[in-house]
Design a protein around this nucleic acid. Structure first.
Length: 256
DNA sequence: ATGGCTCGCCTCGCGAGA
């Protein structure tokens, strides 16, 4: 079983690339982030023609997440549903093939002194409570997303440069660590403890050709799935060429 | 090579992304 996550930076701007990637990569499940459209504007028919069902939690202009799957997603839950007044469409969950799948788009955080940064830290706490109230660490669980946090030095092209900057501050890394402490394993890092592999590159300043990137898109799996992990990587090819997303898809493979 | 930001929009310049 192949499970992937991809921040597409507008699903409508990326429609052709998305369809091409589904056709070539053939993931069983794909978590999408930054749809930048409402559910009504999501290209449902094109995705269906490509052989995928879609559970969509959309929003006009910003955010928006989805779960695409060859099998129909069941028991779809949209948002954190924790009673907090929050218009951001950043989370969707569904069950596919016996696995509870979560597609997450963590807040960016803008600058360290901004309200958005505080919102980001709070959002991480809310997601941890979401897991605590709805799930058990011994369930088959996969969280795919754009986490907007580089967990370790190796996940940045220049840890000194990124020190204290949004996406790499200690508070953000702690917030992500507390989420992982639920019982989640970073699939790529588990398989490749010492390999540097980025998932995002700035559009500006030749970020991609120079490989000045960050690993901020991760797939997390619960304990029962760890022994089934057989592979994980970033698909850099999907970042090449004209009109790419600034993120590349990240995938993992589970043995049956 | 992989190429110098890009997206949506109450759309011609701005806010946000990371």
């Amino acid at each position: 079983m192949k499970i992937a996550t991809w921040n597409v930076n507008s699903v409508r701007a990326r429609q052709e690339r998305l369809l091409e990637w589904l056709k070539s990569a053939q993931p069983d499940i794909l978590c999408l982030q930054e749809l930048k459209c409402t559910e009504d504007d999501f290209p449902m028919e094109a995705v269906r023609d490509a052989g995928y069902h879609a559970a969509v939690h959309g929003q006009k202009t910003y955010n928006g997440v989805a779960i695409l799957a060859k099998e129909e997603p069941r028991d779809v839950v949209k948002g954190l549903s924790d009673g907090v007044d929050d218009t951001h469409a950043r989370l969707i969950a569904a069950t596919v093939a016996g696995i509870r799948v979560v597609s997450a788009y963590a807040p960016n955080g803008q600058t360290v002194d901004s309200p958005q940064y505080e919102y980001k830290l709070e959002w991480y706490g809310r997601l941890r409570r979401y897991l605590d109230t709805r799930h058990k660490p011994d369930e088959a669980l996969v969280l795919g997303g754009d986490w907007n946090v580089a967990p370790e030095d190796i996940d940045t092209y220049d840890p000194k440069l990124w020190e204290g900057q949004t996406l790499f501050t200690l508070k953000e890394r702690d917030a992500l660590q507390r989420l992982r402490a639920f019982g989640l394993t970073d699939a790529y890092r588990k398989l490749y403890p010492d390999t540097q592999r980025f998932s995002w590159w700035d559009y500006r300043m030749l970020g991609f050709p120079k490989n000045l990137g960050l690993r901020i898109d991760h797939l997390y799996v619960s304990a029962p799935l760890v022994p089934r992990l057989t592979g994980s990587d970033t698909d850099r090819e999907a970042r090449k060429g004209k009109q790419p997303s600034d993120h590349a898809p990240v995938w993992l493979e589970l043995r049956d």
